[in-house]
Computed example of a mutant assay.
Amino acid sequence: MTPDTQSPDAIDRTEDSSRCVSETILDATCGGRSIWLDENKNREDTLYIDRREEPAGFVDEAVADPPNNPNYEVSPDEVQDYRDLPYPDRTFNLVVFDPPHIIRGDGMKTLTGVMTKKYGALKAETWQSDLRQGFLELFRVLKFGGTLVFKFSDESVDFRTVVDLAPQPPLFGTTVRGGGSSVETRWFVFHKDCSVNTDTEQGGSS
C-alpha cells in the first residue's frame, strides 16, 4: 500500500514536472488493467500508471472465502497521481481515464469491500475538485488533436455531473441506458482542440 507520507488523497509536488517519456499512450488509472484486451495489457507504446501498487491476492483480504481474485494486482509502470503528473505539456496522443466511481468519506484511506479494493474510491469532500483537476492535468499532457477516453459508473453520482467537470464536452459516448441494472457504466470520448486552455500549459492554448 502507498505509505501514509504519500497518501493517494494528497498531491505530492516534489516530482520533476518536465520528465520526458517515449510512450505515446497514457493509462492514467491503470489499476489491474482490466479494461485492456489481454494482448494489450503490456504495450510498449503505453505508459500504465496508478496512484498505488498492490501485490497479487490483495483483494482476497476483503472477502470471507478467498480465493476470489487471486491473480488481481495493481502493478503500474510508475506510481503517479493523475492530478499532478511529471510529464511535459502535450506528451501523449491518447489518454485513458478510468477513475474510481464509488464515493467514500475517507476516500482511498480505508478500502474494505471487493469493489473498492479493486478500483479505489473517491473522497466525499473533494471528489469534484479531484476529478476536475484530473481532467485538467490529463488534457495538459494530451497533444492537440489527441483523444481522451473516459469511463465511469453512476453508482454514486450521475454521469452529467461528472462529465461537466471536464474542460470541454465529449464528442460522443454512451447515451442510452441499458436495462436490468440500477448501476451503469458508460464511456465518453473527448478530442482536444486548440481552444482548450488548462491554465497549466505553457503558452496557454497556443
Rank of each mutant, 00 (worst) to 15 (best):
L37Q: 15
P3I: 09
D193H: 13
E73S: 15
D65W: 08
Y48T: 05
G105L: 11
S181K: 14
T14V: 06
E23A: 12
D98L: 02
D158K: 04
G179S: 14
E155H: 05
K151T: 08
E78H: 06
Y119G: 10
R140W: 06
Y48F: 13
G105F: 09
G105W: 03
G180P: 02
M115F: 08
F159V: 07
T161W: 03
R140V: 03
D77M: 03
T175C: 12
D77V: 00
R90P: 04
F159L: 07
Y87H: 10
D16C: 15
H191P: 06
F159T: 01
R90G: 05
E61F: 06
R19S: 14
T126P: 02
D130G: 02
T112W: 03
K117N: 03
D164R: 12
V149K: 13
T116Y: 11
V59G: 12
Q168P: 02
S153I: 01
L94N: 04
R51M: 10
V59A: 10
L136R: 11
P67Y: 11
T200G: 05
D9A: 09
F58Y: 15
V63I: 10
N93R: 13
D98W: 00
C194T: 12
L85S: 02
P8C: 04
W127N: 06
V157I: 14
N42P: 00
S156P: 04
E15P: 00
L37E: 15
T126A: 09
D27T: 07
P70Y: 07
E78Y: 08
N40W: 11
R43K: 11
S17T: 15
V162K: 00
R83Q: 15
